[in-house]
């Protein structure tokens, strides 16, 4: 078993899937010759050829639209959008076509495609390169939204997303691309979509997060652990469909919950989770559920990012406040 970072784990997932299924194709800007700006698709062009590893013109609408067309005509395309900040041009295609083709044709046609993109702040990037706008996609019926948090998770979830019969938006936390390494099985394996991952067990408080927030949560949870607060930690990993069952059963056990969301506060995934906790576990609550989120402002440029980005300290603070309520 090799020790890999997320970029290599994703690359391995591609290699395995493209080997296994000749209908899997990769398309996007700079994905071929350059191997992708983060090198996720490096080496695929040499292994699988230019028909299947497609360097496209610089045109996000065309990338998303072509992926839909490829999927409708027998391929399993994995489209790369270079940064989430450039994905908004794909919304028309994703909402008006990818997400609803199955329903509008009464399952006569479907769109097995993946649209992957790096997302998130905390990397001192250029303007438009730090966004975390997952809620835009989460609200669309018919789409699945997946966010891995570790290298192994990224591999298993990407493989499941490629094999899934429905369109998946796959969000890769830029900050975690090379942040950590872990052992990843050489062979292909899947992690089911729509199921949260129990990261750590504890009886005092539930802490829920996803993507780039998980390493921050783990730090915070370690610190409060020293103060005797035992956290039940869940990595949501699929934001749509959301595994509220796992969250509810944890909250019923602990009676307390903190949700950590990198994105702005207004109408985010955390808000939806809190609503579901209200509907399903209100009477188990010992304290108001708290969410740690970004404020409802534009992501600041690198010099101001410190005012914006969530820190382990802020999470620790929230956990203590809710635990001691």
């Amino acid at each position: 078993m090799a020790v890999l970072n997320m970029v290599s784990a994703l690359n391995q997932a591609f290699g395995g899937e493209m080997e296994r299924d000749p209908s899997v194709v990769v398309l996007g800007e700079d994905v071929g010759r350059d191997g992708g700006v983060f090198r996720v698709t490096e080496g695929l062009l040499d292994r699988f050829g230019a028909d299947r590893v497609v360097d496209t013109p610089l045109a996000e609408m065309a990338i998303a639209g072509m992926a839909v067309g490829m999927a409708l005509n027998g391929l399993r395309p994995v489209a790369e959008i270079q940064f989430m900040g450039f994905s908004y041009l794909t919304l028309s295609t994703m909402i008006s076509h990818a997400s609803r083709m199955r329903n509008r044709t009464r399952s006569g046609m479907h769109v097995p495609m993946v649209m992957r993109m790096p997302y998130g702040a905390g990397v001192k990037a250029l303007e438009h390169h730090s966004e975390s706008m997952e809620a835009l996609f989460v609200q669309v019926p018919g789409l699945k939204v997946v966010v891995p948090s570790t290298p192994r998770e990224a591999k298993g979830l990407l493989i499941s997303s490629i094999r899934d019969p429905d369109p998946v938006v796959f969000l890769e936390p830029t900050r975690s691309y090379r942040l950590m390494k872990e052992e990843v099985e050489e062979e292909s394996f899947t992690i089911p979509l729509g199921e949260a991952r129990q990261v750590r067990e504890g009886d005092d408080i539930t802490v829920v997060g996803w993507g780039a927030m998980m390493p921050l949560i783990e730090k915070a949870v370690g610190s409060v652990g020293k103060k005797g607060i035992e956290c039940d930690v869940l990595d949501l990993r699929t934001l749509s469909p959301m595994d509220s069952t796992a969250v509810l059963s944890s909250v019923r056990k602990t009676g307390r919950c903190v949700i950590v969301q990198e994105a702005p506060r207004n109408c985010g995934v955390a808000a939806e989770l809190i609503a579901r906790i209200n509907e399903g576990a209100l009477l188990s609550l010992e304290a108001p559920v708290e969410r740690v989120t970004a404020p409802d402002i534009v992501v600041p440029l690198p010099q101001g990012e410190g005012h914006y980005y969530i820190t382990p300290g802020r999470i620790e603070n929230a956990i203590e406040r809710v635990a001691n309520f």
Partner: peptide, 30 residues
Amino acid sequence: SHYPPGLKVLPAVIPVGSQLPIAVGMAYAS
């Protein structure tokens, strides 16, 4: 919009022009 399998016709597209990138992807696959 539920057509018989094998007819090779997409359903109507009302958002104007949005069918064209899809048509390119379909042709690419062929």
